[in-house]
Design a protein around this nucleic acid. Structure first.
Lengths: 339, 339
DNA sequence: CTGAAAGCGCTTACAG
DNA sequence: CTGAAAGCGCTTACAG
C-alpha cells in the first residue's frame, strides 16, 4: 500500500502543497472553507504527515524520550514505573506525541543516549528519573540544551524544570502516626542510598524521630527487591531491641517484610506494625492488608508530560509540586502490644 | 549547542558527504583507511546521523512500535509487560533501534495508531500483544504491509510472524501434577475470556481433566486484577463442593486468592493448593510461597524483537516457538487433606 | 575508489 | 489568501 503524501492531498484539493501544510497545522494563510475541504480530503485518504519530513524541516520530532536505569527485575516488579509510563503516555498521546523508551545500564550510558537522541534529533525532550545529588545528567542536559523535566526533587535540578512530591512531609506524617499509636522503636528500610529521594526521606526520618524523642530509630538500606527487603527485615527483627514498627521505601519490600515477620512467628500488627511506601493494589492483596503511603502515580506522570511539552514549547517552566502522598491505615498497623 | 551534520564530518575529513555516508553505513565505496579516519572524526565531534533525514531518504525509521491495550491499573501491577518491554528493549538497543510505546483504549484505537504510525513512517514495524481469535488487527496490518510480529499464538496470526509458547502443554503438566498429588476437584481462575491464550488454556484444561476423569473441574473468568481474583476465589470456596486446588492465570490473582483462603480460615496447602501462572518474584514474597508456572519473559521479548528486525530486513520469518513454562513447586501445593 | 547531484516530504519565508 | 521555491540532512544511483 502506498503512503499518501502532502502532494496527493494538494492535487485532490486543487491547491498547493504549502496550502495543505498551513491547513493541517492550523496556520493562517488559507480560508476556513479551504481548510475544511483539505482536512476532509486528508482524512478520507488517510493522510498523516511524515514525521521524518516534518522533523527535517525544522519542526519538532513530536517525540520525547524516557531512559530508565534500573535492572529488568526491579523494573518488572515495581508497579511505580509502569504506572508512571501510563500517565506520561496518556498526556502525550492527547497531543499526538510519541514516547521513546530506552533501558540503560548506568548513568554514563544514559548520558550517551541523551547525546545520541539529541544528535539524531530523535526526541524534542526527555524525562529524568531517579535523581541523585550532584547528578551528572543535569549539567549534561543543560549543555546540550535538550528540553528536560526531572521527575523528582525538590532541588538539585539545576536550571531544569521538575515535578516533585514532598516526601519529607509524608514521612513525618507516618512517623507521627506511629508515635501516636505508642511506638517508640521505629525502623525504616530505605531504598538505594544514592538516590536523592532516599536521602530526603532519611533526613526527615532522623529529624522527626529526634523531635519525638524516639531514640530506637534506625534506617537500613536496600535495593527495592523483595530479597533485600526480606534480608533487612530479618536483621532488624533479630536484634535484641527489635523495632515494633517498620516503614519500607516501597511496597514490594513491605510485602517481603510481612512474610518474614510471619515466618519468624511474629503477629502483624500485634507484635509488629508495617507501613509501605507506594500504595499499589498489591498492598491490599496480602493478609493483613498493608497500611500504605500512596498517591496518584499516573497523574504524576501526566503532570511531568505536560511540563515537558511546555518546556519544548518554550514556555517559562520551573518546579511543580505534585500532591503529597497520604497515609491509608489498614490492618498492618496498631498500637504495640506490651511485652 | 549546534548539532554536527554529515557536512561537518565531510569537511573535516576532506571528503564528500557521500563518502561519509558510505563509511558510516559500512557500504563499499571508501577505502578502509578513509573509513577509519571518517569514523574517528565522527566520534570525535559527536556526530550521529539525523534519524529524520535518514528516514526521509528512504532508509528505515530505526524505530518499532508497541501499542498496549490494557488499563493503567492492570498494566502497572502485572510484572509481565514491564519484563517483556525490558527484554524487547535490550534486543533493540543492541541494534540501535528505538522503541515507541503507546497505550490505547481498544483494538479500534490500536488499529488507528498502526495506520498513523505507518502514514507518518514513524516505525518500521510493530509488536502485537493480547491476540484474539479473528483478531481484526491481523488483516489490518497485512493490508498496510507493515512488518509485524505477534507475541502470542499459536495460530490465528494470518501471514504475520509470531513468537509463542505452548501454554496448553504447561497447563497439562500442572493438572497432571495436581492429579498425582491426589486432587480430584481442581478449579481454574482464567484471564479475559476473549484472549486467545485464555481460550487455549481453557480447552487444554477441559481436555486433561476429562482424560484424568476429574469431573469437578471448573473454570471461572476474571480480568487479571486482584479484586476479581479475590472475588472468583471467594465464590469457588463458598461452593458446597469446593475445590481442593486452584490454578490462576496470573500471579496477582493467585496472591489475592491466597489472601482470601487465609481470611476464610483455610490453610494453604493443607485445605487448598494454589498454583500461579507467571512466576514473578512476587510469588516468593508471600507466605507460603506460591507454586508457579514460569518462564523467562525478558528473553521472550528479546526473541520477539529479533524476529521483528528480521521481518523488517526482509528475511523469511514464520512462527517461532519459545520455551514452555515450567512448574516450580513451592509451599502452596501439597496432597489434599482428608475431610 | 570519489564527487556532484537528485530526491525523500515536509515547512516556511517570499512574491504575487 | 495562494503559489513557486528554497532548504532541512541524509542516501544512493550515476559519472568520472
Amino acid at each position: 500500500m502506498k503512503r499518501p503524501t502532502i502532494a496527493d492531498v494538494a492535487r485532490r484539493a486543487g491547491v498547493s502543497k504549502g496550502a495543505v501544510s498551513y491547513a493541517l497545522n492550523g496556520q493562517p494563510g488559507v480560508s476556513e472553507a479551504t481548510r475544511q475541504r483539505i482536512l476532509a480530503i486528508a482524512a478520507e485518504i488517510g493522510y498523516s504527515p511524515s514525521s521524518a519530513a516534518r522533523a527535517l524541516s525544522g519542526a519538532t520530532a513530536n517525540a520525547v524520550g524516557l531512559a530508565l536505569c534500573r535492572p529488568a527485575r526491579t523494573l518488572g516488579i515495581e508497579p511505580f514505573f509502569m504506572e508512571l509510563i501510563s500517565g506520561i503516555e496518556a498526556a502525550l498521546s492527547a497531543r499526538s506525541y510519541a514516547l521513546t523508551l530506552q533501558v540503560v545500564a548506568d548513568q554514563e550510558a544514559e548520558i550517551a543516549v541523551y547525546r545520541r537522541w539529541w544528535a539524531e534529533r530523535r526526541v524534542d525532550g526527555v524525562f529524568v528519573c531517579d535523581l541523585r545529588t550532584h547528578d551528572p545528567r543535569v549539567p549534561a542536559l543543560e549543555t546540550l540544551q535538550l528540553p528536560a523535566v526531572v521527575i523528582g526533587g525538590p532541588g538539585h535540578t539545576g536550571n531544569l524544570a521538575s515535578v516533585w512530591s514532598d516526601d519529607a512531609a509524608a514521612l513525618v506524617e507516618t512517623v507521627e502516626y506511629l508515635g501516636a499509636l505508642g511506638h517508640r522503636r521505629i525502623a525504616r528500610v530505605g531504598g538505594l542510598p544514592s538516590l536523592l529521594h532516599t536521602e530526603i526521606r532519611t533526613d526527615a526520618f532522623d529529624q522527626v524521630c529526634r523531635r519525638l524523642g524516639l531514640d530506637g530509630a534506625v534506617t537500613v538500606w536496600s535495593d527495592y527487591t523483595g530479597e533485600e527487603g526480606a534480608r533487612a527485615t530479618r536483621r532488624l527483627l533479630s536484634s535484641a531491641t527489635r523495632p515494633t514498627a517498620i516503614i519500607y521505601d516501597n511496597d514490594v519490600m513491605a510485602i517481603a517484610g510481612l512474610s518474614v515477620a510471619q515466618e519468624m512467628g511474629l503477629s502483624v500488627p500485634g507484635d509488629l506494625s508495617l507501613v509501605a511506601w507506594d500504595d499499589s493494589p498489591l498492598c491490599q492483596l496480602v493478609h493483613p492488608p498493608l497500611t500504605a503511603l500512596g498517591r496518584d502515580i499516573p497523574a504524576y506522570g501526566a503532570h511531568a508530560a505536560r511540563q515537558l511539552l511546555a518546556v519544548i514549547a518554550g514556555d517559562p517552566v520551573t518546579g511543580l509540586q505534585d500532591e503529597t502522598a497520604h497515609l491509608t491505615p489498614r490492618g498492618s498497623t496498631a498500637p504495640p502490644r506490651e511485652r
